[in-house]
Lab assay of single mutants.
Amino acid sequence: LETFPLDVLVNTAAEDLPRGVDPSRKENYLSDEDFKAVFGMTRSAFANLPLWKQQNLKKEKGLF
């Protein structure tokens, strides 16, 4: 999966995202380093959170 810089994904409308980016899964296009910096946890820890908590975190970080 291709990764993009944080500033390309945060608070970006679906139509302005790079081609192929799923707007409902912007976090998947962050590098592992950016993911950890944004969410303060690994991808696996994030995946283990309840869906509502994942969505709330994504909203807080501008990735929803």
Rank of each mutant, 00 (worst) to 15 (best):
V38K: 01
S24Q: 13
V10F: 06
D22G: 02
K26Y: 05
E15R: 12
L30E: 01
L49I: 05
A14E: 14
E15W: 01
E60R: 07
L1G: 11
L30T: 01
V10W: 05
Q54H: 00
S44W: 12
F4P: 03
L30W: 03
A37N: 13
K58C: 06
K58E: 02
A47M: 13
V8R: 12
Q55T: 14
R25C: 12
L9D: 02
L63R: 03
K58R: 07
V21N: 02
N28I: 12
V8W: 13
V38M: 06
L30G: 01
L63C: 07
S24M: 15
K26C: 06
L1E: 12
L57Y: 05
E60Q: 11
V38F: 05
L57Q: 02
F35G: 00
V10R: 13
N11Y: 05
N28C: 14
V8A: 11
T12W: 09
L63S: 02
F39E: 00
A14L: 12
F4R: 02
A14R: 10
N56L: 11
E33W: 08
K36M: 14
L17Q: 03
G62T: 01
F39Y: 02
D32A: 08
F64V: 13
D32K: 05
P23F: 04
V10N: 04
T3C: 09
Q54W: 00
P5Q: 04
L17N: 04
F64N: 15
L30K: 01
Q54F: 00
Q54Y: 00
E2Y: 06
L51H: 13
T3Y: 14
N48K: 14
V10S: 06
K59W: 11
V38P: 00
A45R: 09
A45G: 07
F64I: 14
L63P: 03
Q55Y: 10
N48W: 07
K36E: 15
P50Q: 03
F39N: 00
L63K: 02
G62V: 01
E33K: 10
K36S: 14
W52G: 07
M41R: 01
N28L: 14
P18G: 05
V8Y: 15
S44E: 15
R19K: 15
F4V: 06
L17S: 05
D32F: 05
N56R: 12
L51A: 09
A14I: 12
D34K: 01
G20S: 12
R19F: 14
Q55D: 14
L57W: 03
G20W: 12
D22K: 15
